[in-house]
Amino acid sequence: MRRAVPLDALTALYHRRSGQTHLVTEPVPAILAALAHGPATLAELVVRLELQGLVADTDTPARLRERLDELETIGLVWRL
């Protein structure tokens, strides 16, 4: 569905379904990896990220919400 190539601080992401390229920074690759296991609420997402040790102290639920909104705008995640 996606192809990711780490460049430096940023990761280049090719989204096959839209044909679009995105340059993203953590925690976005972690969020996408966590959601690849299936849909989740915000709370479930936090748990998944913590289980994988992928959540930084600065990634508060409020900040994760902001990232999710941005990802929704570009179509990488969507609400059920």
Partner: peptide, 22 residues
Amino acid sequence: MGISEVFIRLTQASTNYVALGE
């Protein structure tokens, strides 16, 4: 230059990057 900066500048220097897809 950072690799991502090079990447961005070369996408801007390409006339068919998007059209070639993956």
